[in-house]
Simulated scan of single mutants.
Amino acid sequence: MNIAFWITAGLLALFYLYAGGLKITRSRDQLRPMMSWVDRIPLSVIRTVGALEVLGALGLILPPLTGLTPGLAVAAAIGFVLLQLGAIPVHLTGVDHKVALNITLLLMAVVTVWLATIWV
């Protein structure tokens, strides 16, 4: 279970560090080719979501790695479940209707919650 946790948590953390970093640092015009929904959401919300993604990725990896409050990994994984539960309707109400990645991330986050609950 330990290896499975690190694989799923590591993949989620890498994805959210990248995606969150883009949302924090790039302009709306730079984000538009990758994220068609950015025109419908205020830039401050996009930046906030990006910051939460980066913090969640760190919360998924650092607490279990250091042994300091490893239960925060469960909270971070639950946060990613909630994030995707909010992201799916945003994508469905837009033009593209592409939610395969969101469903994959949701399932990975659910598995990570379960593994973190068992392991941590």
Score class of each variant (00 low, 15 high):
14 L>C: 13
34 M>D: 03
54 V>P: 00
62 L>E: 13
56 G>H: 13
21 G>Y: 14
42 P>D: 08
43 L>E: 13
84 Q>F: 06
86 G>Y: 10
46 I>V: 15
94 G>Q: 06
24 I>M: 13
39 D>N: 09
35 M>H: 07
67 G>W: 10
61 I>R: 09
56 G>I: 06
15 F>L: 07
29 D>M: 03
17 L>N: 09
15 F>V: 05
97 H>I: 09
85 L>K: 01
8 T>N: 12
21 G>N: 05
65 L>Y: 15
76 A>D: 08
93 T>W: 05
68 L>G: 09
28 R>A: 07
74 V>Q: 04
59 G>S: 14
26 R>T: 03
42 P>K: 13
96 D>Y: 10
72 L>M: 14
21 G>H: 14
20 G>D: 09
83 L>V: 09
83 L>N: 13
44 S>L: 10
26 R>H: 01
28 R>Q: 06
39 D>H: 06
84 Q>S: 11
77 A>V: 11
33 P>G: 00
15 F>I: 06
79 G>N: 13
45 V>N: 12
73 A>Y: 07
43 L>F: 10
36 S>I: 02
77 A>Y: 14
92 L>F: 07
95 V>C: 04
29 D>K: 07
20 G>F: 02
84 Q>C: 11
40 R>E: 13
61 I>H: 03
5 F>N: 05
10 G>C: 08
24 I>C: 06
43 L>G: 01
30 Q>C: 03
47 R>E: 07
89 P>N: 07
67 G>I: 03
9 A>I: 13
34 M>I: 02
88 I>A: 05
52 L>S: 15
29 D>A: 10
69 T>Y: 08
33 P>S: 02
85 L>D: 11
8 T>P: 11
42 P>R: 08
66 T>P: 02
81 V>K: 02
89 P>C: 10
6 W>P: 10
12 L>R: 14
45 V>M: 15
21 G>Q: 07
71 G>T: 12
71 G>L: 09
44 S>D: 14
96 D>C: 08
81 V>G: 06
65 L>D: 03
9 A>Y: 11
95 V>F: 07
38 V>L: 02
7 I>C: 04
12 L>S: 09
8 T>G: 03
5 F>S: 02
11 L>C: 10
91 H>V: 07
65 L>S: 04
71 G>C: 04
11 L>W: 06
6 W>Y: 14
4 A>Q: 11
62 L>H: 01
7 I>L: 13
36 S>Q: 08
61 I>K: 11
13 A>C: 14
26 R>Y: 00
83 L>R: 05
89 P>Q: 08
80 F>W: 02
70 P>V: 08
61 I>A: 05
57 A>K: 03
65 L>T: 01
78 I>E: 03
94 G>M: 11
41 I>C: 03
95 V>L: 04
63 P>C: 06
50 G>E: 04
60 L>W: 02
79 G>P: 12
15 F>M: 06
52 L>V: 15
93 T>K: 13
83 L>Y: 13
2 N>L: 08
25 T>G: 12
80 F>A: 02
96 D>M: 12
77 A>T: 08
8 T>W: 11
86 G>C: 10
